[in-house]
Design a protein around this nucleic acid. Structure first.
Length: 543
RNA sequence: GCCCCGGUAGCUCAGCUGGAUAGAGCAACGGACUUCUAAUCCGUAGGUCACAGGUUCGAAUCCUGUCCGGGGUACCA
């Protein structure tokens, strides 16, 4: 609809010989002004040295010439806006197309089947997923769905590293707990993993092997069992939050296939690395970065940056058209180095889009809970899901913009009452299903042959217009990659429906009106269902 | 010090590629269940959009500076 109005204006400008400058076409805040408004005359005023109102009138006169009964009214308003009123017949016909398209209403093919890779979570198997991981998990999943709805061929990938220093520490942490279980009095080192899950793993190992490995801190059983048990736990958590990855990528591959070495070789060929203090440094400063960074430590181990670089190059080489990374704010400083190196190595980094989400702060009983995998006190994502359910967790994580700090009030989330905004959406769906079930029982079903021009009440037209916005919202979300916009839209749409419900009856003695409203609510059900589905939320038929 | 995010109603936050009178939920107060689900709806009240400049016909939105809060600034990931 917006596109349609937009092209009417553009055609008119061309006919009038006006220069085509960027202008807005949107629905105004105040509905009484019109269905669609444009500022085109205001933007042209300076260029044409004419009064905006005069320009507006000129354009209106010209547009009316090409009118195809699409507009019911066009008028100019101070200081120079053009307000359009759309013929309700257009809305009625569009409403029916919602019904026809059903499950695919809202989808578009602007992605044109291009391949997109979304990398997220990517937690190493050193402990259970935290609430912080949860935000990235849900965000990444919803972003993937958004791209999917916009016609991309999407792959969800989890990147992990099961080697290196962190894993070594994990093995030793388990070993030390194992010693304690075997009855030895030792001081558990402060910089080891403190969580209770380490004790559980140690206990499991002790049951299997007894005290056989007391003398063998380096025995692979500690590290390997820990990795396996923790990864199993992570995968269970992902499943519980209804998240399915298409691929898990092990950093080890990058060593095995030589791509890490290749980054170093290529950088060396470009004279972008040097040795200092027995370590290998990247010349960040010569490519515009603030500081040089170590890529290979004096111990010979790479820092995390190096495999990240190799991994991103690998992703580009795999041929994706769009590569999305979802990181927590703690990674914000790392990715520019990665991009800088890829740029220097002549890779197309415009394909890479990095989404940074701010931290999650958990409040419990009015008190802030600090989270750290290494320390004992954190609330795992798993516990959270068990507490409040996957739908609530998912919704809480995407209902706020990703770059604001998220205050997650546990007590509120646990509250299964009307405080919980997820239920507002789900209740709207359950309600509409209930009406439809009731209607079906008396053999009334939505019928596309129904004449809809009886739907003239303000609340009905508001609802129709809102429903028709859904594809626009989906399309916009592909640009912002911000699932919150979908959530906000659904809240607004559900609100209009609830108001409609409270004031008007669907099933009544008026057969004509009943039939028309059946089409309306069937269309609403499709929109709310599709929106919930897009966000990975369930759409219950009863509550 | 430097970098990144944020500062909008009592609280949690929308709105931010500039548009017409700044919105929602919760909390407060007052109403609506013999009715298709009251997990809902209606009403009242609540604002120097952190502050100061600037750009513009027009700024919560863009620019600069200041203040406050969070995060980052490792040969940890």
């Amino acid at each position: 609809m917006i596109e349609k109005v937009s092209s009417f204006i553009t055609e008119s400008l061309t006919r009038l010989g006006y220069k085509i400058t960027p202008f807005s076409v949107q629905s105004p805040n105040r509905p009484e002004l019109g269905d669609i408004a444009s500022n085109v005359a205001l933007t042209l005023a300076k260029e044409l040295k004419m009064s905006p109102m005069v320009i507006a009138e000129t354009i209106i006169a010209d547009i009316q010439d090409t009118d195809e009964n699409f507009f019911s009214e066009i008028h100019a308003a101070n200081p120079g806006f053009i307000n359009f009123r759309i013929n309700p017949d257009y809305y009625y016909s569009q409403l029916k197309s919602i019904f026809t398209e059903s499950d695919s209403w809202g989808k578009n093919d602007s992605g044109n089947g291009k391949r997109a890779l979304v990398e997220f979570v990517s937690a190493n198997p050193t402990g259970p997923l935290t609430v912080g991981h949860g935000r990235g998990a849900v965000l990444g999943d919803c972003v993937s769905s958004i791209l999917d709805w916009n016609g991309f061929d999407v792959q969800r990938e989890y990147y992990f590293n099961n080697a290196g220093r962190q894993m070594k520490m994990l093995g030793l942490s388990v070993y030390n707990r194992y010693l304690q279980i075997c009855g030895q009095e030792i001081d558990f080192p402060e910089d080891y993993y403190q969580g209770d899950y380490i004790k559980d793993i140690a206990a499991t190992i002790s049951e299997e092997i007894g005290s056989a490995n007391i003398e063998h801190p380096e025995a692979s059983v500690f590290r390997d069992s820990a990795e396996k048990l923790i990864f199993d736990d992570i995968k269970k958590t992902l499943k519980d939050i209804h998240l399915v990855f298409d691929s898990f990528f092990n950093e080890k591959e990058l060593y095995d296939n030589g791509s890490i070495q290749k980054i170093l070789d290529d950088l060396k060929a470009l004279d972008l690395i040097y040795s200092k203090d027995n370590a290998t440094w990247f010349k960040g400063t010569t490519v515009g970065r603030e500081a040089d960074k170590v890529l290979v430590k004096s111990t010979g181990e790479p820092t995390y940056r190096l495999p990240d670089m190799a991994y991103h190059r690998e992703k580009i080489e795999r041929g994706y058209d769009k590569i999305v990374d979802v990181f927590g704010a703690d990674h914000a400083d790392a990715y520019p180095d990665v991009l800088a190196v890829l740029d220097a190595l002549d890779n197309d980094t415009t394909k890479i889009e990095v989404l940074i989400h701010q931290f999650v702060t958990i409040y419990q009983d009015g008190e802030q809970v600090k989270m750290s995998t290494r320390k004992a006190n954190f609330i795992s994502l798993d516990q959270l899901i068990e507490d409040v359910g996957a739908d609530v967790v998912r919704y809480f994580f995407i209902m706020r913009g990703m770059n604001t700090h998220l205050n997650f009030d546990l007590n509120l989330a646990r509250d299964h009452s009307d405080m919980n905004p997820v239920f507002y959406l789900q209740y709207a769906h359950a309600r509409v299903c209930s009406i439809m079930a009731r209607a079906k029982a008396i053999e009334i079903e939505p019928d596309l042959e129904t004449s809809l021009d009886i739907l003239t009440k303000d609340i009905e037209l508001r609802l129709i217009r809102k429903l028709l916005d859904f594809p626009v919202i989906v399309r916009k979300s592909a640009i912002s990659l911000e699932p919150q916009s979908i959530a906000t839209y659904l809240q607004e749409t559900a609100s209009i429906f609830h108001k409609f419900y409270a004031h008007e009856r669907v099933i009544s003695d008026d057969a004509e009106l009943t039939a028309a409203r059946m089409v309306l609510i069937a269309a609403f059900r499709i929109v709310i269902f599709n929106g919930l589905t897009l966000l990975g939320l369930s759409a219950p038929e009863k509550m």
